[in-house]
Design a protein around this nucleic acid. Structure first.
Lengths: 155, 155
DNA sequence: CAGGATTGTTTGCCTGGTCAACAATTATCC
DNA sequence: GGATAATTGTTGACCAGGCAAACAATCCTG
C-alpha cells in the first residue's frame, strides 16, 4: 500500500485491486467492450477508416434496405437527431443514398450504393478477421457460449 | 388513443436484421454494455447520483488507498488530464480527499473520507443488487462462466 | 548544479449522445 | 372536409468524456 512500491511497478495497472467489482458483471462487460473497441480501432478503423458505429449502421442498412432514418434510430436505440450526422457521413463516403420514399414524402429510404456494397463486402472480411483475432483466447465453442450468454442479457 | 405508436420499444429493433454481425462478438459486447450502462443509470445513478465511471474510480481509490492520480489514470487506462475532473467531482461530493504526499510534493495521495467509506458501503449494496438484477436471466453458474470468459478476453 | 522526467492542471478540440424547437407532411377524428 | 394531432428529418444548444499539447512546480540523474 506504500506509494513507493506502487510507483516502481510500471506495467499497465498490474497491482491495483478492484475490490468487489471483480465479481460484478458490468465491470467486466465494460472492460471487454473498451478492449474490443480499441482493437477495432487499431485494425479496421486504421485500415478502412470506418468506426464501429458507422460499420454497425452500414450493416443494418445493408440488411434492411429501404428502411427509414427513424427506423434506423429505433434499431440502434439512439435519438433520431443522432442519425442525421451518421447518415450524412455515410452519404459523403458514397456508401449509401437517401432515396425518396414512394409512399411518404417526409421520409427517406436508405439504401447502399453498389460502391457501398463492394466496400461493405471488403470491410466485412476485415471485421470478422478482427473479431476472431480479438477473441483468439477463446475456443470457437467458448466464443459461441459467450455470445449466447450475452444475447440473453439484453433480451 | 394513440395506438399508432405502440411499436415495441423495450425490444430494440423488432424486425431489423443484423446480418453477419449476429456472429460477431464485438457487436454483442457493445449491446450488452450499453444495456448494462442504461440499467445502472436507471437504478443506481437515479437513486444515488453516481455514474458507473465515478463508481469505478471510487472503488479503485477505496481498494488502493493513497494512490496517486497518475496511478489512478494508469489503472483506469485513461489520460492523466481526464482524472482531474473526476477527482474534483469526488472531492466536491466529500467522498475523497487529496492528501499531501509525504515523499513527493508534486503528487497527491487519494483517500476516502469516512463519509466516503459509508457512502461507498451503501452504494456497493445498490450496485451489486443492480448487477444481479441485470443478469437475472442467467443462473449464478452462468454468470460466473460469463465473467470468466470476459476476463480471458482482455487479459 | 544543470538538465531531463514526472505530476497535476489548464486549455482546446473532437466524438457522440441528449433535448427542444421547427417546417413539411401525414394521420386521425368529429 | 377540415381542424387537430402525430411523425419525419433537421438544426442548434448543450453536455459527458475522451485525447493532446503546453506549463509551472517538483523530483531525479548524472
Amino acid at each position: 500500500m506504500k506509494l513507493a512500491q506502487m510507483k516502481t511497478v510500471e506495467d499497465a495497472a498490474p497491482g491495483v485491486a478492484h475490490g468487489c467489482m471483480d465479481d460484478e458483471l458490468g465491470f467486466h462487460l465494460r472492460r471487454s467492450q473498451v478492449a474490443a473497441f480499441k482493437h477495432f480501432g487499431q485494425t479496421v478503423t486504421a485500415a478502412e477508416g470506418i468506426t464501429p458505429g458507422l460499420y454497425g449502421m452500414l450493416q443494418v442498412i445493408a440488411n434492411n434496405s429501404g428502411l427509414t432514418q427513424s427506423a434506423l434510430a429505433e434499431a440502434m436505440d439512439v435519438d433520431r437527431s443522432s442519425i442525421v450526422k451518421v447518415v450524412n457521413q455515410l452519404e459523403d463516403k458514397r456508401l449509401i443514398v437517401r432515396d425518396a420514399s414512394p409512399t411518404d414524402r417526409r421520409s427517406y429510404c436508405l439504401r447502399l450504393t453498389s460502391f457501398g456494397r463492394n466496400e461493405l463486402a471488403r470491410i466485412e472480411q476485415a471485421v470478422t478477421a478482427q473479431d476472431r483475432e480479438f477473441s483468439k483466447a477463446l475456443s470457437e465453442a467458448e466464443r459461441h457460449t459467450l455470445i449466447g450468454l450475452l444475447k440473453r442479457l439484453y433480451k
